[in-house]
Design a binder for these strands. Structure first.
Lengths: 210, 210
DNA sequence: TTAGACTTCCATCAAATGATTGAATCACCG
DNA sequence: CGGTGATTCAATCATTTGATGGAAGTCTAA
């Protein structure tokens, strides 16, 4: 059985997929309450009723967007893990930061939506957040902080969260921070990578026997 | 001349001040679009028209909230700076993290609103963000990363932003992260401080001659 | 060609929401 | 007292917004 989301992804040109792509971006920029179905429909160039026909309602669409975002990020992280496998920790960190940062700058709605879900409330319920802990467990193992994915101690989860969040912050905050720094986009990306390495590599390599 | 905000702060029991306090919390939790004037009025226990009488409109109130938040944080940071003045860098960092974290856990709406402004868009304009750069310049000086408040290089601003944001993340994300970690509030606060020190102290002391 | 499904849009609804008006109430001062 | 200004609220308005129904269009298979 294929979920509606999988079905939408099979043909990227399908109306369903087009709506999903636009919805990712708009929801990411304005959050759940800041986004109207009319904004999304207009951006796609369709009527709102077409949107409702394909996705049911605003909340359903939003939930699909969140699931889609998480699926993408998870896949990207697993790609990154294959690249860094076997390298020394400091290199693993540096390469992970480079690759993840590049990916997220290309898909800022991923960071936007994740931060929105972390820090904002939605006045409606919705419970599909069990995906996040798995993320952190994967990353923890890949950083050599945990042997298996079960029983990762809170201290370790916190460290992983700190790393992930610091990346999302700079991606998502570009529109705020870059004017403040008065640098162009290319320079900003370089600064982000540099800063993330400056902050994180010493922390995780301080007790390492080279 | 006193601004409306200052006037409201003179008598903390005044209706104006009570509305402002509630508005801080609600705007912090749900963001600008997720908050309705009715939510705020109901929480205060008044009619919406009373709210409009004192603050004009939703946007005016929101802007006052943001200014108020920034004023509070700035004052707190200047208090912290006095405490840590003259100490060695690693201690300055540790104490700053402890004090700032304690303060923000007591006033989470500060972190909430700051993150909302960094990462979200508002569909309405609004331009009173010149306060942030000054913040970072103050912190940069206090961390020994800059001599004066003028001409702080982007690299330094980025480092300061990384530190500040990582704190805000854990404060604001408590409702998301703590259930995930399955720890009580006290333990969470301890974990936050521990993690922040683990991440940041090595980065900033790595090249220090003790 | 046609029957039937799938898709899209126009018109419209009901609820939510920001905002205003005018009347009532309160506080203070002569 | 009485009056004057400040404050509060009930009632109401106009717009926005999520959602729906039904007509029209499109495509495929028989």
């Amino acid at each position: 059985m294929t979920t509606p989301l999988e079905k939408a992804r099979q043909d990227p040109e399908s109306m369903k997929a087009r709506i999903l792509d636009v919805a990712r971006r708009i929801f990411g920029e304005y959050g759940f309450h800041g986004t109207t179905t009319r904004m999304i429909a207009q951006e796609v160039g369709i009527d709102i009723s077409t949107l409702h026909y394909h996705w049911g309602g605003k909340k359903d669409l939003y939930e699909s967007v969140v699931v889609d975002i998480n699926k993408d990020l998870r896949q990207k992280l697993s790609e990154v893990e294959k690249v860094i496998h076997g390298l020394p920790l400091s290199e693993r960190l540096a390469i992970s930061i480079d690759l993840t940062t590049d990916y997220l700058f290309d898909h800022p709605e991923v960071s936007n939506l994740i931060l929105y879900r972390y820090f904002g409330k939605t006045r409606c319920e919705g419970n599909f957040d069990a995906i996040v802990p798995e993320f952190t467990a994967d990353i923890a193992r890949s950083m050599g902080l945990a042997r298996d994915k079960k029983n990762v101690p809170p201290e370790t989860t916190m460290k992983v969260l700190a790393v992930m969040n610091s990346i999302h912050n700079f991606i998502s905050g570009e529109s705020f921070f870059r004017p403040m720094l008065k640098v162009d986009r290319e320079r900003y990306i370089a600064l982000v990578k540099e800063t993330l390495k400056f902050i994180h590599i010493p922390a995780f390599t301080q007790n390492e026997a080279t």
